[in-house]
């Protein structure tokens, strides 16, 4: 197990290198010239373009630019945003807390609602609870996230006045966005939990355990959950990818200054260093979460070997 983790950490570096390469290539395949992008209306002025290209180091060969970029990344320097003129790292760190809080809130709400309703409906299959929670899950999965965000905004903020309509001044402002994101996630978690439990419940070892006369509670908690959680954990790990996308849209509707919104805006503004740096940063987080998920796998399903 320890060797496995060490190997994974080494691979992490490999993945990050791949990410820098893919991002760098994508950013340089993009037809726009960053210097012209920066100049906007003045982009027709060739003197300024040449001058700015030189200032930004864009006149150097691509390979050199790439190595300088990687060298910077190794020193923790992701470059300076064209748009904000500030260092990419500081911009991300500035916006990280909001996104972490939002994601965390959404995850907690998603897990609480998702797991409990998934478990209830699997254990009490065909009951009213099952129908209700699965219908809820269906609706949640099928709901466009900004549509839900707007409905919640209209009802809880405008009609009832319980929350600010948007903005981010305190934790209270994270309730609606977290609920929006959380509800969407709870739906897929509930679905996955239910189907996974139903699958495991029919397994031989569960039947054996039951046949041996083990109490139902112990059967469910010891034998079923542990195994049923594997795909659920995968799903949660995967959701982190979607979580940032969902967070970006939620952040946009609720005007939360988070990383997701920052990155989407940067892509639209063609803020190359911001996109490059942002992606690398997000990559680190995702890779770490994936590693964590894989380790959880091994823990949950001892039949998976890692050597």
């Amino acid at each position: 197990m320890r060797n496995y983790i060490i190997r994974r950490l080494l691979l992490l570096i490999l993945v990050l290198w791949g990410v820098t390469l893919v991002t760098f290539i994508l950013m340089h395949v993009v037809p726009g010239d960053p210097a012209k992008v920066l100049l906007g209306k003045l982009s027709g002025n060739e003197v300024l373009v040449t001058k700015l290209r030189h200032q930004l180091g864009l006149d150097k060969p691509l390979v050199v630019q790439y190595f300088e970029f990687v060298k910077g990344v190794l020193r923790g320097d992701l470059g300076n945003s064209y748009k904000f003129k500030a260092s990419v790292m500081s911009l991300i760190l500035e916006r990280m807390p909001a996104t972490i809080k939002l994601t965390f809130g959404a995850l907690i709400i998603g897990l609480l609602i998702g797991l409990s309703s998934g478990i209830i409906s699997a254990v009490r299959r065909y009951s009213v609870w099952d129908t209700f929670s699965m219908l809820f899950a269906f609706i949640g999965v099928s709901m466009p996230v900004f549509w839900l965000a707007m409905l919640l905004q209209l009802f809880f903020a405008v009609k009832l006045g319980w929350f600010h309509v948007s903005g981010f001044e305190g934790l209270r402002d994270l309730v609606l966005p977290s609920v929006t994101l959380g509800l969407i996630y709870s739906a897929s978690i509930a679905r996955m939990t239910r189907s996974s439990i139903l699958e495991v419940i029919r397994m031989d070892y569960v039947r054996t355990a039951r046949a041996k006369g083990a109490p139902e509670r112990i059967v469910i908690f010891r034998h079923v959950f542990r195994n049923a959680l594997i795909p659920v954990v995968t799903l949660i790990g995967m959701q982190f990818g979607g979580l940032l996308t969902g967070a970006a849209l939620t952040e946009t509707v609720f005007q939360i200054p988070g990383v997701g919104k920052l990155l989407i805006n940067s892509t639209l503004d063609l803020d190359y260093p911001m996109i490059q740096g942002g992606v690398i940063f997000v990559a680190i987080i995702f890779v770490l979460i994936n590693l964590f998920v894989d380790i959880l796998y091994a823990y949950l399903d001892p039949t998976i070997r890692y050597d």
Binding site: H164, S166, V253, Q255
Partner: peptide, 15 residues
Amino acid sequence: DIVEDENTQVLKFKK
């Protein structure tokens, strides 16, 4: 406030 979304601008004003 930085409010990009027009609907949010209106809702915030109304509130």
